[in-house]
């Protein structure tokens, strides 16, 4: 039996577990993965008997985005929604990063805060809406607060886990060189965890966007999420599609931005970036 027929290693490189593939093939497959659903959507919307209210076609949605941009101030909706998401997420990050650093570094802080955080993160953010309205009011703060609640508790636990994954040998090596506790935190744990922390920030930014529609349920009259909710009331299916697609597109752009920063900021991880 030839070597290439070994179990798990035979056949085309495309089907070998974790095997590298040709970059051209990679991009072709990625393009196909994006275009295929679009074509399927186009075909489905043009089938006889498909009601436009039930499933608007890509052209209808594009036209709606165009009219939204020209007549309905799409830019303002995008801006206010982006601001809410980024503000809620940044507030989470500002508290979760230091807190997670301490939970991941000190067992005592972990014992004190992790079970509590684990408990709270299972509470649905949507259920907090009445309380948020009661405590924060119905101004901008309430939308930011909902996004904060949706991301913060997960983020703390992820940051703590990133910090715990710093190899003990890196910390002990610094101890043997006479590093103080604050020096170990500042010069070993933080720089060592940084790539993982940036990944955590990227993933939680995605979650923050998924909470946008929920956040804009609260006494809103602007934003992409609000537009989707309003369109639902008037059964403007094409606008619902437009809103959802725009949120997805903005999320994708931000995600790619994070990946770019990751590549530029951590050149020593060259092997891990694709």
């Amino acid at each position: 039996m030839s070597a290439s027929k070994r179990a798990g290693a035979g056949g085309s490189p495309l089907w070998q577990i974790r095997s590298a593939i040709d970059p051209r093939q990679y991009w072709l497959l990625a393009l196909f993965g994006l275009v295929a659903p679009l074509v399927a959507w186009l075909v489905a919307s043009h089938l006889d008997g498909t009601d436009k209210v039930f499933l608007p076609g890509p052209a209808d949605v594009l036209a709606r985005i165009w009219s939204w941009a020209t007549d309905d101030d799409l830019a303002a909706d995008v801006a206010i929604s982006t601001w809410r998401v980024v503000a809620g997420w940044a507030l989470s990050a500002a508290i979760a990063l230091p807190l997670g650093l301490f939970i991941g570094s000190y067992r005592a802080v972990q014992a004190l805060l992790e079970p509590l955080t684990d408990f709270i993160r299972y509470m649905p953010a949507v259920a907090f809406i009445p309380l948020v309205m009661l405590w924060v009011g119905i101004e901008e703060g309430s939308k930011v607060a909902i996004i904060f609640i949706g991301t913060f508790f997960q983020m703390v636990l992820m940051v703590a886990e990133d910090v715990r994954r710093v190899p003990l040998a890196q910390i002990e090596a610094a101890q043997t060189m006479g590093a103080t506790r604050s020096e170990i935190l500042e010069k070993v744990i933080v720089p060592s965890a940084k790539p993982a922390l940036l990944d955590t920030l990227r993933v939680t930014m995605g979650w923050a966007w998924t909470y946008l529609v929920v956040a804009e349920l609260v006494a809103s009259n602007s934003g992409l999420g609000y537009a989707v909710l309003k369109a639902q009331r008037f059964l403007q299916t094409d606008k619902i599609f437009a809103g959802i697609l725009l949120i997805g597109l903005i999320g994708l752009l931000i995600d790619q931005g994070f990946r770019l920063v990751h590549r530029k900021a951590f050149p020593y991880l060259a092997g891990r970036h694709r």
């Binding site: 890196q170 090596a173 610094a174 006479g178 060592s192």
Partner: peptide, 23 residues
Amino acid sequence: HYSLYPWLTVTQNIKFCRQLKAH
């Protein structure tokens, strides 16, 4: 193993202790 600092170059790793107050 795993005790080197991957974000520092070879020279920076070797000189790491120079950043510490103890040295």
